[in-house]
Simulated assay, not measured.
Amino acid sequence: MSRIASIAQTLHHPSFRAGFIDMAGTSVGIGAWGLVTGVVMVKSGLTVGLALFMSLVVYAGSAQLAVIPLMSVGAPLWVIWLTASCVNLRFVIFSSMWRGYFAHLPLRQRLAVGYFSGDVIYVAFMKRFPEGRPAPEQVPYFCGAASTNWLAWQIPCIAGILLANTVPLSWGLGFAGVLALLGVLLSLLFDRATWLATGVASTAAIAAFALPLKLNILVAIAAAVAAGLLMEAVDRRRHKPTVVLLPADSVLPPEELEHVKAGDVVPLREERHP
């Protein structure tokens, strides 16, 4: 199958449309976030060309917003790199989860998955495909969600870059950006661990606000990671797996196999000696 035919097949796949629809609900928030980021990049002193390059190549809104203030005050390069790396550490976790779905794809396509991956895409994808194994409809779904998210970000962001000098600060776009980020954040909070990590990060960021060079961001990230790891350790200790002794010739029923896969049950099979 030619590349054009493959692309056409993906675009017409029902899962592509499903991914598009699932991401449409968050497009307004993503667009507002992108618009604010575009304006902020130029207002902070970046040239239009550099801002466009950053938007199209970096394509990481939270990292961009985190490092732009550091760049504007002339922070050391290592602080800028460390901040961006810490903010984007979550994508290492995302990538480890994507492996179960996309490890069979060629390197070029896996790199594309890495570029187009995003927080909201990850949440929507995992809700639709929680099993962690490849399926034919996953790539079209990801493409539909990723294309929607990319356009929802890039079009407003580029508009903000090009129109930054005509947008007055009195419009309060900074507050609009905060609201957009808050909406995206709330869509990512789905269990007790994420709520706790968010609360710890917020508290740490406020407590360390007086630190220079926006280092309170790094403090908040470190505190959130520590809280998340602590929660996982507590949950593992609290939910110890059940050991089940099985006869040598027995077969686990399907519902028990699900518990084994989840790690809730550890089967021990009796050995039969001649």
Rank of each mutant, 00 (worst) to 15 (best):
L182Y: 13
T148A: 13
I93W: 08
A145S: 14
A227C: 09
A75H: 09
L229M: 14
W150N: 07
G31W: 11
E232Y: 01
L186Q: 09
N165S: 04
K261G: 08
D249N: 12
K127P: 00
L56W: 09
A204M: 08
L246T: 10
F16L: 06
T148K: 04
F209M: 13
L230G: 13
L169A: 12
L257K: 01
M231F: 12
V243L: 04
H239W: 06
R192F: 05
V39F: 07
A210M: 12
T83F: 07
G49W: 15
L173K: 00
K43S: 10
T242F: 10
G172C: 07
Y141Q: 09
V36K: 04
W153S: 03
P267E: 11
M97V: 11
P136Y: 14
L82T: 12
T37H: 02
D191M: 02
I121S: 12
R192T: 01
S6T: 10
Y115T: 05
K240G: 07
H13G: 13
A51C: 02
G118V: 01
G19C: 00
S202I: 13
L185R: 10
C157K: 03
V244H: 05
L182Q: 06
E258S: 05
S2E: 13
F16I: 07
T166W: 14
P274I: 00
V167W: 09
K127H: 05
S6I: 09
V178S: 03
V265A: 06
A112P: 15
R90V: 03
F102M: 15
S202Y: 04
F129E: 12
I21N: 01
A207T: 11
A66T: 07
P267A: 05
G49F: 15
H104E: 12
L230V: 15
S187G: 07
V92T: 12
L173S: 00
E255M: 00
S15Y: 11
I21E: 04
P274R: 06
P241R: 00
F142M: 13
V200W: 03
Q154A: 14
L181T: 06
I221M: 13
V73C: 07
W33R: 02
L213S: 10
A164L: 03
P140C: 11
A8C: 13
A180N: 05
L105D: 06
P254F: 04
I80K: 12
L181K: 09
A208L: 11
V67T: 07
V39I: 15
A75Y: 12
S147H: 02
M41V: 05
F175T: 04
L218N: 09
E256S: 01
E258T: 09
L163V: 01
S6N: 07
I158V: 15
P69N: 15
S117P: 07
A227W: 03
A180T: 04
F116R: 06
P253G: 08
A227P: 05
V139G: 03
S117D: 09
A193H: 01
P140N: 14
I221W: 04
K127Q: 11
V67D: 01
Q138I: 08
A164C: 05
P253Q: 12
A5G: 07
T166Q: 13
V120S: 03
V42G: 02
V58C: 02
L246I: 14
G172S: 06
R238P: 14
I221Q: 10
I7E: 08
S27P: 00
D119L: 04
S250I: 08
